[in-house]
């Protein structure tokens, strides 16, 4: 006689629970996009999309919502911060992985771990205390500009510091994973260590390095709190790095007080977050493709 057992029904049940949870999460993702799209209908029906992106007047009282300053601000801040972050963090990652003695290596890596886990508001707070006065009292007068210190440059510096640990940890990981033979062969030809790094290692570790840079870029693009604390939040287009500006995420946070009351503004802000969301999605998918392409292109075996 067969003894009844609950083992197999149990296994089946748990499997279906797993299917349900995974499916629900995937569905939630779609729901997020749909809900944001549906709620931004209102502003889209009032204003044309072109006007939203190309107008620079942000005047909620007259129902005008121009994103152009925030869009430009976002790209300027991200670009400047990456210009600072990429050389500094790549050079130090190379130093950590290739030159530093093992003792310093473990020490620096635990430091980088802490830096990566530090909340963004803490960066903002420290920037308010240190970078803002420095920019106000030294950098501003140096260029003969009067500035409050709350400006695009400050925000870019903070973002660069936030991006350091991301790029460093991924680059170090990618370079440490390279086989020893690769180094030995090239060094035996009489190359210097820097030639080895420049010609061989940077390419062999290229896919890893680039995905680290792109990950840092994505973080800088979506970072909200630290930027909102130091950028000065002014909806104007400026050419100077030393004047206050605005980014898309800081615009959302900055206007959230009034957000509840005016439906049109609420809708406009939701449209911004939808745009941000879609940019991030495209970005992430592109990263995957670029990484795969480079892996094939810079194959070293």
């Amino acid at each position: 006689m067969k003894i009844p057992s609950f083992r197999h029904p149990m296994d089946k049940t748990v499997k279906w629970i797993m299917v349900a949870v995974t499916g629900a999460t995937a569905l939630l993702f779609v729901l997020m996009v749909l809900l944001l799209a549906q709620r931004s209908q209102l502003v889209l029906s009032e204003t044309r999309v072109g006007d939203l992106f190309l107008s620079s007047t942000w005047d909620p009282e007259r129902g005008q919502y121009g994103f152009l300053p925030a869009v430009i601000g976002t790209f300027v801040v991200t670009a400047v911060s990456m210009l600072i972050a990429i050389p500094v963090s790549l050079l130090s990652a190379i130093y950590i992985s290739e030159y530093a003695p093992p003792k310093i290596k473990t020490m620096v890596q635990s430091f980088v771990d802490v830096l990566a886990g530090t909340p963004s508001v803490v960066y903002g707070l420290c920037a308010l205390l240190v970078i803002v006065p420095v920019v106000r009292d030294f950098v501003g007068p140096l260029f003969g500009v009067k500035t409050t210190g709350m400006c695009i440059l400050t925000a870019s510096i903070v973002l660069a510091i936030m991006v350091f640990p991301i790029i460093i940890s991924i680059t170090v990981e990618a370079m440490t994973a390279l086989p020893l033979g690769l180094r030995e062969q090239f060094l035996s030809l009489g190359a210097t260590k820097w030639q080895l790094i420049e010609i061989v290692l940077m390419r062999a570790a290229g896919p890893g390095i680039i995905s680290g840079v792109i990950l840092g870029f994505g973080r800088a693009l979506g970072e909200t709190m630290a930027v909102a604390m130091v950028i000065g939040s002014k909806n104007v287009i400026t050419l100077s790095l030393l004047s206050p500006g605005q980014t898309l995420p800081s615009l959302i946070v900055g206007s959230f007080g009034e957000m509840m009351s005016v439906p049109l503004q609420q809708s406009a802000l939701l449209f911004i977050s939808l745009v941000l969301f879609i940019i991030i999605i495209i970005f992430n998918i592109l990263t995957g493709y670029i990484k795969n392409y480079l892996k094939k292109r810079w194959r070293f075996e």
Binding site: F29, L215, G222, T224, L270
Partner: peptide
């Protein structure tokens, strides 16, 4: 992709 989404978007959702 969800990992890369800025946290403010979850808040807005």
């Amino acid at each position: 992709v969800l990992w890369g989404v800025p946290s403010i978007i979850f808040g807005i959702f």
